[in-house]
Design a protein around this nucleic acid. Structure first.
Lengths: 239, 239
DNA sequence: CGCTTTATTGACCCGAATCAAGTAGAGTGG
DNA sequence: CCACTCTACTTGATTCGGGTCAATAAAGCG
């Protein structure tokens, strides 16, 4: 199985053999974590960025009152803190949501890459802007969608993102989020989330249980979640 | 007054004379818009990006039910759709919130820049990641902060961002958002927003009226809004 | 000066939070 | 193999924040 970052990029542009090789070289340093480990700590200024190869992770922030807000769900192929290459300090933490495998990429290597590989640089830049587009959409979802719709939107988006890196097919995939996690993604209480999830289940469009999501009716799920793939920029184009 | 993009970048790194000149060359094509004009249209694939030079703009998305969600407030120096250089289609629109002056920068020129100016490329990349960091923080704010706190957070953030491009000082600035706009930023009804704003005013920490915000007690405002500048990456550093 | 947009206020009601209790598995250890 | 515990999930009751509807005041603006 190729590097999921390669899949992520290849889905959106051609990669030259040299570029693929460059990615392979960058992503040598691997590490495995169990669930619930902090991969990236808020407030730090890492000298490396974390590429998620396997498993799920959350980008999250804890408010003063101790309320958690999950601003992004990461899937394999996501360069979860590539932006730490350019920012002062990381404004959120990233926590594993399952057993994960990651690759650490030194900022010095990335910076060198930007000097020698302009096209690949643009693709990495693109990866951060796709990430940002997902986050932007999440604002509308959290701010303006009904709870059921938020869940439906998430299921659609995860399915598409996982498919592009070969981690989902046949309208089903594993997704280990607990209901507490889901509540923290959508700014809801767990009680209310539970009821909303039951509402969604009762429509029959999706089975969502025991860490597995099975989509029974893609079109209706898309409709309920007002999902539009546009923001994932999945067209293969010269960038 | 220098180009606000130059100010935005200079606040975070050194710019060489050559780089400043490159920016000047890129941003020749100016245009003025009145309030409420669509600068960037959702679903299109522009061949140029829009740099905001003067005035305010909103990044927004309208849901199927016609509910508007504003995901970002733009201030001078913001390259409001720089990411359209790398994405397929724009997943949101950008609308002027006041009389604005913008500069159109051709994607072909930007792409050429990425081939010849790696450092400046990194800085533009940084600009998009700072934008993303603001959006990420907005998710926590909308999802988990009390309405008063959302307003306080916005006031703090705008003040800092405007200051860095020389558009605010002495703890006061113009901000032409209507209460309908504010409600659409925070996912609230206008009625509730109005009451929350009155609550905030009644604390005496801020005057917020007739398109002008005056901060009376910065420390308390920061406290109420749980504001932390970190995510704006304002350290001057070699990037 | 009327007309439209924006801000404000009150009444009412519903969606969602909180509190509280109970159930179901999954693991752990005796 | 069963009691014990821990975590995740579910359900009911109650409360309250915030939405909706509606009317009015104030402020631009053509």
């Amino acid at each position: 199985m190729p590097n999921p970052l390669v899949l992520h990029l290849r889905r959106r542009d051609e990669l030259s053999p040299d570029e693929e090789e460059a990615i392979e070289r960058l992503t040598q340093r691997r590490q495995t974590f169990s669930e619930n480990q902090e991969l990236v700590a808020e407030g730090t200024a890492p000298k490396q960025s974390c590429l998620l190869l396997k498993g799920f992770a959350y980008r999250q922030h804890i408010t003063r009152e101790g309320r958690r807000s999950i601003s992004q769900v990461h899937v394999p192929g996501d360069f979860v803190d590539l932006h730490s290459l350019l920012l002062d300090k990381i404004d959120h933490s990233v926590v594993s949501a399952s057993k994960v495998e990651v690759s650490w990429v030194a900022h010095s290597d990335l910076r060198r890459l930007t000097e020698t590989h302009p096209h690949l640089t643009r693709l990495l830049w693109m990866a951060t802007t796709v990430d940002a587009a997902i986050t932007r959409r999440a604002i509308s979802v959290v701010g303006r969608y009904a709870p059921q719709a938020r869940l439906a939107h998430l299921a659609c988006e995860l399915y598409v993102r996982l498919s592009t890196v070969g981690e989902a097919s046949d309208l089903r995939f594993r997704f280990p989020a607990t209901q507490v996690d889901l509540a923290d993604m959508f700014g809801l209480s767990t009680v209310h989330l539970n009821r909303s999830l039951q509402d969604l289940r009762s429509t029959g469009v999706v089975t969502w249980d025991a860490g597995e999501i099975v989509i029974r009716d893609w079109d209706r799920l898309v409709d309920i979640g007002q999902f539009d793939v546009t923001h994932l920029s999945l067209k293969k184009a010269r960038r």
